[in-house]
Write a protein that binds this DNA or RNA. Structure first.
Lengths: 338, 338
DNA sequence: ATTTTTATTGTGAGCAGTCACAACCTCATA
DNA sequence: TATGAGGTTGTGACTGCTCACAATAAAAAT
């Protein structure tokens, strides 16, 4: 009764049990046409009898394809894009594997990590890191012939990429504030190494300049809640007045709300606040946050679609697909009160 | 100059270039001892000259090991446990792959998804789904000889598992409220199919009973913000009075805070609130949320450690490792005011 | 100097599939 | 009845690596 050592059934086991060749079994498994219904039946019967499961590693080795895509993220706690990415991949018949990489790590370490990924016989790679952490040519070299798409990287980056036009998003936010009468607009931006943070910051200055306005006080945060809190305290301590704050992401905006409240300032009566990202909680902040939403479903769809088309057609030209964000107006912004 | 079709170098290419056998090359790659330094040098030289990269699929096929673990989550948006899990796996020399499964899907679909995972030549599986979605024996059958650990499942579930003693966590929360003088405690619990939600709910009733108290009004939510908001409105509409609410998770607590505020009730002066999970934002709620924290690092460490020990020793007995949560007291709870 | 030990290398046979090709069988058509 | 067309099956040669074993060389012990 010692069934410990029963080996997994292979294609050949199934073949000999059902009295056909291994090739025929392979055909049945891969849904090839040109298999007689009766034969197929026999094979399927043998498969279930032996509880046969095809060995993926062997398949990958033989075909050179794995039907797996890998998504590389820079921070797993920011999980919002994951469900749409998984969905988009699945829709196209791919399994999406997810892993993390630290874009601020030493160059060698990054290379090692990327090579590791590239060797795992993956059909394509999505690099979701708003850090310009590796040049295109270097990436090509590391990845060999594995196609990859950058997501959320710099505009104008000459590499396969899908991005949001954050300049546009920031302009929407700033114009909204200006439309409400605000002229002295402060800013809390994120870490400059973070592409999104840098672009949003630059766009903020550009947008103000386009309207002939000088920026109000500016502080730097790190995209985490506490840094938004601290930065806002610094804003309040500065002698430059302001009636609104543009905050680089929603998380920091949450910190900003607390700082203002502790200072006895009401939002939006005393200070208006605009965030960025429209995270799930933003609608439930006190008050609900006006913010810029980027449609992550679209982003995921486009990224996967682009990647898959590169897999299928190696001559696919490099392009940058640009998507547009939208402004979500809630209660954290209001007209300037004299 | 057509370098399109350069094939990837193989072990044999390296071998012939460096004038040794393929086996020796293999030894160099796998850091085996018993390779003469000079030989190793020659081989390494050839490897870098050919830019050789070992083919993982072939390795997996030949060894039957992949040095990969897979983590199955039920909801990717809940990304908090991911970083510690990735770290814990990496520390032990494993790459962690992450994927999602819908525990409420049809049984067949779940089986298919699990088989898919199991066939991918993975060394071990962590199932992080607080849903009793598959019996132990069935899971064994699907996974064959691949070890797996359930995380965050029911206490007393006879399967390899790592859980938090939520009964204890809830008791801490309830006793905290009772200690503040509260006697009429309402509850917003999560969906009963969700193990955590159910256990927290049951523990809430038990904890009250242990102190001879009747529960206040009880509403059901779905663990998302809006449901906490709605449920709390229902609580307020009921005729049962209460001075505190125990909310099944922090997200719903956020909704509850808004509902109370809109109702003109102050927290904690009029109503105290305790949440569960201690999500990153909880400290920045208005007011900062008193909640129950579960140390996810410890959870990750223990899960991976247990899984790895099962991989290394197939006779490892089934056990359930129980960890303890702690109460984090913030400003959302205060003494009962007559 | 001879034996034993130990370090270093090479050989055959897998691992579990796929692909390209060839061979066979029908069946309808000329 | 012969002839192709096409559906159906089988064969050989791969995919790139590791394992167990054997063979050799060098060093240590007798």
């Amino acid at each position: 009764m010692n069934e410990e050592l029963i080996k997994r059934a292979t294609l050949h086991d199934v073949a000999s049990l059902s009295g056909v060749s291994y090739q025929t079994v392979s055909r049945v498994i891969n849904q090839h046409p040109h298999v007689a219904p009766r034969t197929r039946q026999k094979v399927l019967q043998a498969i279930s009898q032996l509880d046969y499961r095809p060995n993926q590693a062997a398949k990958v080795l033989a075909t050179g394809r794995s039907d797996m895509l890998q998504l590389i993220m820079y921070d797993m706690r920011y999980g919002d894009p994951l469900p749409p990415m998984l969905g988009a991949a699945r829709e196209r018949g791919y399994t999406l594997l997810i892993s993390e990489i630290n874009p601020l790590a030493a160059k060698e370490e990054i290379h090692k990590a990327l090579q590791d990924v590239a060797n795992r016989m993956i059909d394509g790679l999505i690099v979701f890191t708003p850090y310009q952490f590796i040049p295109y040519e270097e990436m090509r070299e590391v990845c060999r012939d594995i196609p990859f798409v950058f997501v959320d990287t710099d505009p104008g980056f000459k590499a396969p990429s899908v991005i949001f036009d954050q300049r546009h998003g920031v302009a929407l936010a700033v114009e909204h504030l200006i439309g409400l009468g605000h002229r002295q607009i402060a800013e809390v931006h994120g870490p400059p190494l973070h592409s999104d943070a840098r672009i949003r910051h630059e766009s903020f200055l550009t947008a103000l300049a386009a309207h002939g306005l000088e920026p109000g006080p500016i502080e730097r945060g790190e995209f985490v809640i506490s840094s938004g809190y601290n930065a806002t305290q610094h804003l309040l301590a500065s002698d430059k007045p302001f009636s609104a704050i543009f905050v680089g992401n929603d998380r920091m905006a949450l910190g900003a709300l607390r700082a203002l409240r502790e200072h006895g300032l009401r939002v939006p009566e005393d200070v208006s606040i605009v965030g960025y990202d429209d995270m799930a909680e933003a609608a439930y902040f006190m008050p609900p946050l006006t913010t810029v939403r980027q449609n992550l479903s679209t982003l995921a769809q486009q990224s996967i679609a682009y990647l898959v088309s590169m897999i299928q057609d190696r001559t696919m030209p490099i392009q940058q697909r640009v998507l547009y964000p939208e402004l979500i107006v809630r209660a954290s912004t209001g007209p300037l009160t004299a």
